[in-house]
Computed example of a mutant assay.
Amino acid sequence: MLLTGLICGVLLGFVMQRGRFCLTGGFRDMYIAKDNRMFYALLIAITVQSVGVFTLIHFGLFDFSAGQFSWLATIIGSFIFGIGIVFAGGCATGTWYRAGEGLLGSWIALFGYMFMSAVMKTGFLAPVDSSMKAIALPTNSMSESTGIPTVVFIALLVFIVTTIVYKELKKPKVVIPSLKPKYTGLRHLLFEKRWHPFVTAVLVGIIAIIAWPLSAATGRVYGLGITTPSANILQFAVTGDMDFINWGVFLVLGIFFGSYIAAKGSREFRFRMPDAKTGITSFIGGNLMGFGASLAGGCSIGNGLVMTAMMTWQGWFSLLFIILGTWTASYFVFIRPQVKKKVSATSGAYLA
């Protein structure tokens, strides 16, 4: 049954690589380019998953408990995670699938991410993690804390997302020049044709739904998750303890292999070595990701895609602060240096 995690991961890695489902770029573009399409795509994936998973719960396939809301750890951890993904050049899932493309900077970020996640969960920072998570509200469920049925929250989300999609699809299409296709049929569709982000989002949402019953069948009652499985891989490599191997580990390994298949098929795979500065920055970003995601109880997938779909405060607060962290880092990494260059150029011209 654990192999179903590998299959699910391969599908997710393939879809995310071909659809360029990059949440780091999406959150950054919201601030820098005023382009919200990838954020809208995320909302579509959340909505599809929410409808599907709560339908499965309704029919008794598995149970879900939202637990308590460790609000302080979620806010601080998510903000730090948002900063980390800018330095790392990709979020947790994005780092896995970009590593499958041969981007060695992502391998460096991935090691930092796995290392710090393991340190936070079972290493010397575990007391910090547990003490901050102890500051919590009794319920994490939006429905339980407000008395409003979950179906109302889902219906509201469906209405908002449907309205957004309708308005976006009514906008004039921008024709992007492309090379003459080399393939035809299914091969062209899978490996050559540009995928619309909304189509990719629907596929990600469907895979996220499928992940729940497959994972629950192995005793892991959760959907897509990246942080704990990533830490488990490193912990298994160090200790050899088979208890660290579960459905989630096969999932993240599958993301890597799925991305590799997609990248090879679309002729996008190649090893790319970063310069020293980029390598150091990637490693720092990976460590920030590992620290933040562990503290927050999830990354942009575990919290931003899954826990949002489950209508929890943790999910929606985490998504908000991941975005704010991404915007903060984007200002200092991309915006401020350009402003300084313009000021220096203006000053130089004035003195001349």
Rank of each mutant, 00 (worst) to 15 (best):
L169E: 08
V51E: 01
G19D: 11
S318A: 15
F62G: 05
T4A: 14
G315E: 07
F153A: 00
F291G: 00
M120G: 01
T95M: 03
G100K: 00
M30V: 11
A296V: 04
V238Q: 13
S117Y: 07
T47L: 02
L6H: 04
G82A: 10
G9I: 04
I32L: 15
G348V: 09
D35I: 03
G89K: 00
G348M: 14
T228A: 13
P127D: 11
I335R: 11
D29V: 04
T281A: 14
W96D: 09
T122I: 15
F153G: 01
S230D: 00
I301P: 03
G102T: 07
G5R: 12
L251F: 15
L179Q: 10
N246D: 11
G9L: 03
S294F: 08
M120T: 00
F64P: 04
D243R: 12
P149H: 11
T163V: 12
E192L: 04
S344H: 14
L61I: 13
I209N: 06
S230F: 02
G100C: 06
Q338K: 15
S347H: 13
F64H: 10
P213C: 09
T95I: 06
L319C: 11
I57M: 09
A211M: 14
V333T: 13
H196I: 10
L103D: 14
Y260I: 05
T95N: 12
F332Y: 13
A296F: 02
F250A: 12
G248N: 10
A349W: 15
G348P: 07
S78L: 02
L295Y: 00
F317V: 14
S300P: 06
L42P: 02
A136T: 06
Y331R: 03
N232G: 07
L324V: 12
G26D: 06
C91W: 04
L110T: 11
I46K: 10
M30H: 07
L351D: 07
G94T: 11
W195A: 08
G94V: 10
G297V: 08
A211K: 04
W327D: 01
V333P: 05
R272W: 07
R220A: 15
V249E: 03
S330R: 09
N232I: 05
G302M: 02
M120I: 00
S330V: 12
V128D: 01
M38E: 01
S50K: 08
V53P: 08
H188M: 15
S131W: 05
L186V: 10
F256Y: 15
G123T: 04
S294N: 08
S117N: 08
I83Q: 06
L110M: 15
I261G: 07
N140V: 05
L103E: 13
G219H: 12
S130P: 04
I255M: 07
T328C: 02
P213K: 12
C22F: 03
A329D: 01
V333D: 12
V86H: 01
S282V: 02
